[in-house]
Amino acid sequence: MSGLIDILSVLLILSGLVFFLGASIGVVRFPDFYTRMHAAGKGDTLSTILIMSGMAIQVMSDFEGMSFLVAIKILAIAVLIMLTSPTSTHLLMKAGYDDGIVPVSNNKKAKINDIGGPFLEESVSDKSEAKKKVKK
């Protein structure tokens, strides 16, 4: 390990490992479906970008023709995960929300309608209004 480029890449890789540790601890330890989702989505995305850019710098430091292409491919993986990880987190969370998974709260017997907030209440009232219109 010598030179600024190596030190920079090692720093990027180690900071990415810290965020990965946060993601896996969050997935195991958080009390709730939605909070676990939050830890998984955010920690994975940031730490993947950090480690991939560190490895791209590491590969680029050879200064050959082929290594430039490989570094571009590694950065393409980072961009791919940056696009797909929030998308899949959003879709899975929407699936859980539609299934009525209850967020953690002090009210143990609450259903999703009691905690769900204005968004769900609006959609429910829309459905009931739609039913009324059908009946009329």
Partner: peptide
Amino acid sequence: GPTAIDRIVAVNVIGTKTAVLLIIIGA
């Protein structure tokens, strides 16, 4: 994991870590 989606998220986390680990193994 109490719900099925919890399990899918955990598998997703492991998959992302594996993609990073493959690059490190290659290096």
